[in-house]
Design a protein around this nucleic acid. Sequence first.
RNA 1: GGAGGGAUGGCAGAGCGGACGAAUGCGCGGCUCUUGAAAAGCCGUGGGACUCCGGUCCCCGUGGGUUCGAAUCCCACUCCCUCCGCCA
Length: 434
Amino acid sequence: MIDLHLVRDDPRRVKAALARRGIPPEEVDAITRLDGMHRAALKRQETLRAQVKRLSREVGGKRHAGDAEGAAALADESRRVGEEEREAAQEVDRLAGDLRDLLLVMPNLPAEDVPDGAGPEDNVILRHWWPGREGGTPEPVPGEHQRVPHWDVGSRLGILDMPRGARLAGSMFPLYRGDGARLLRALTSLALSRHADAYEEIRPPTLVLTETMVSTGHLPKFADEAYHIERDGLWAIPTAEVPLTSMHRGEILEEADLPVRLTAVSQCFRREAGAAGRDTRGLLRVHEFEKVELFAYATPAQARALHADILARAEGLLRDLALPYRVVDLCTGDLGTSSARTFDLEVYAPGSDRWLEVSSVSWFGDYQARRANVRFRPAAGGPPVLVHTLNGSALAWSRVWAALVEWGRQPDGSVRLPDVLSPWFGPEPTIRPR
RNA sequence: GGAGGGAUGGCAGAGCGGACGAAUGCGCGGCUCUUGAAAAGCCGUGGGACUCCGGUCCCCGUGGGUUCGAAUCCCACUCCCUCCGCCA
């Protein structure tokens, strides 16, 4: 949630920042108006409430003094005021609810250095990397044998079985087998070990309460994007960011304990409701995938360095895996609702001939922390302050899997894997037909 | 799934209808005493909303209800503990 106090104190700044995202200024005015009404109603209710409390105390006093008549008279008066107070309270509740509804769907203010733009076409590509680039090796040109999409490579090698996945769960639910399944396990294991020096490994629940989804910003606005188990009131997480953000929900942390750095692997579930018919082949876009996430709660002063660290770690993994990638600075038109600044990492997949998003590294400011009510007590004293949250995938395996299989394909149809995977696939890691 | 017990401040733990935002102890911070420390003593010590900066209001698991008045009574739910059943 954006800061209501900021809307009050500096509405022009809020409007200007949100205008960059295409939010009309009237929506900010609507918040200001409701806020004013809410505060007025609150004042009225509290005044009445104070009266009831005072009268009730006097009833007690009179009764103790043996003045039954006086007590009854005051009780009558208190009852009348109490009824008024009850009505006022209903008005307060109604206005508070309306205000909250507006605030919950209002996106975060973009950071000042986010490039302006209307959509993905205006994102800024910051840099490219490919194996050997630092040493002057030219950008790789895929050979004909690498121009085979991973769904073909996968089915020929018997490591990816989309038809059987569809039999179990419908389309876009992949089923990996043999070395294909083992590759996923290897990638997760590799990544978690890489982050273990600074990030505590967490295994969170995959199904979470509504409140947990609201805290990150996935609800109420994007309910259509998530799988919902109505009978139990639970939601399937679209990313481990969701449970990790709520891990300390409602807590006041000590500044000395920050940053809290966490890493988690989880299944990620996405309905992809708005993407019907797009990128439906193979693993380009799936309803369920596995992802290792990096996450941090930080002080505002620590946030920038952590954002850089998470990005560096995600890039480091791609370099270890020798996959050509580019770093994309998301423009205001493509920035996620909760994010203030996001860098995407996209891997080139030669068989599919597409750039695949395999990581999204975001700084949320205090937007999520305000929803989740996660604060820290400043070491220097003073009232608790909202933390900043940050996260990034490192990495989303379905698309990494696709890129590895396409880049690794040899003229004989086997797939050569990067050497970092030797612990799982032997000295010259290769997947051959069974 | 069934039976019972519980949920109060950083922790422990009283309170069971009226001045209770809450005794007491521990912890923590400050001060006094001391060469220093310990001990002892004194003072302080939750979060939040609104504010005409005087204050007012809310929070005793959550949500309803009863009452002039609820931490305290009633109802529902959640979570925790014990036992039984079932189960990977």
